[in-house]
């Protein structure tokens, strides 16, 4: 197995530190608690775990073939969506409303980085570039992410609104992409769909709690959905590339109905109306981005660009 890519390594370290900190706090609470009448044996709790005995599964989903130019471009679109969203979510580590939510968002970000790695790895093979080359050495106009994913974190409700739309879109997309004629894309999607299924559950739970919580949380949820909804349409635009990938790519316009059908019951239960407002012109697939992507990439790429080829 190759050295883990920097993206994943860095984020995982950060998340693990937080996890361990959580463990510390949790253990602390347990220590202060009165003895509950049973001793913890050394191996109790998590069962007997030996690090050497753990079988690590593959980090990347790899296929037998190299993507054609068009398929590589399509994989780049999807990979960039996940990478950019993961980078935004990583900001929440140590800043979420509670420690537990730090870790939930961190886990979601790591899932997305996993998807991005597989997609960018597949995409880059065509031009002899690694997933790290694509993540760290492309400029802003070379990124293909849709505007939704690069929208700022805002407050917690904005992040949940973005997650709600993103996860529901990604779930419908990957559900269908799992049946793609391209075996590698199908395999990547089949793994990813189970993870984004959890992401949409996480988002739905929070939409309900914020919308049905206090007056303040409801107002923020309404504001968050209103601010993110304009970026929904771009996800369903059929670019010319899609016409050339019949049977391989999922036609974005076919996802609008299913994605709405998945979101509508949650909004109904939360007593929220579909937001009405302007529609963003988008352009992410052509490299036209909002003002948010530049600073995001600067932060994501600075280390790799300051120390080219560094590894640890």
């Amino acid at each position: 197995m190759s050295t883990p890519s920097r993206t994943d390594a860095v984020t995982d370290v950060v998340t693990d530190v937080v996890t361990d900190a959580a463990g510390g706090v949790v253990t602390d609470a347990a220590t202060h608690a009165p003895d509950r009448g049973h001793d913890h044996g050394e191996n109790e709790g998590h069962g007997h775990v030996e690090v050497d005995g753990v079988e690590l599964s593959a980090e990347l989903v790899e296929g037998p073939s190299v993507a054609s130019h068009d398929v590589a471009e399509y994989a780049l679109w999807l990979g960039d969506d996940s990478l950019v969203l993961a980078q935004q979510l990583g900001w929440w580590i140590s800043r979420a409303p509670e420690l537990e939510e730090d870790i939930a968002l961190g886990n979601i970000a790591l899932d997305l980085i996993g998807h991005a790695r597989s997609l960018l790895h597949y995409s880059g093979a065509e031009s002899d570039r690694t997933e790290d080359d694509l993540a760290y050495w492309r400029t802003e106009p070379e990124f293909r992410s849709a505007h939704l994913f690069e929208q700022p974190n805002g407050d917690f409700a904005h992040t949940i609104a973005r997650q709600f739309i993103a996860a529901n879109y990604l779930f419908e997309l990957y559900s269908r992409l799992a049946g793609s004629a391209d075996a590698t894309l199908a395999a990547i999607a089949a793994k990813a769909v189970k993870e984004v299924d959890y992401h949409r559950d996480h988002a739905a739970q929070w939409v309900l709690r914020l919308a049905l919580g206090t007056e303040e949380s409801r107002a923020r949820m309404i504001c968050g959905l209103g601010d993110l909804w304009p970026f929904l349409d771009e996800l369903f635009v059929d670019e010319p590339l899609i016409d050339r990938l019949e049977g391989v790519a999922v036609r974005p316009s076919t996802l609008r109905g299913p994605a709405w059908d998945a979101m509508a019951p949650v909004l109904r239960e939360a007593g929220l109306d579909e937001p009405r407002g302007f529609i963003s012109s988008g352009g992410g697939r052509r490299g036209d981005h909002s003002e948010n992507l530049g600073p995001l990439l600067a932060e994501m790429q600075v280390l790799a660009r300051s120390h080219p080829g560094a590894s640890w």
């Binding site: 463990g23 347990a30 709790g45 939930a104 709690r209």
Partner: peptide, 15 residues
């Protein structure tokens, strides 16, 4: 295995 904070049972399972 330990303890955690959550606003309700549903989110406790997820956390």
């Amino acid at each position: 295995v330990g303890s955690l904070h959550a606003p309700d049972a549903t989110l406790a399972v997820r956390n």
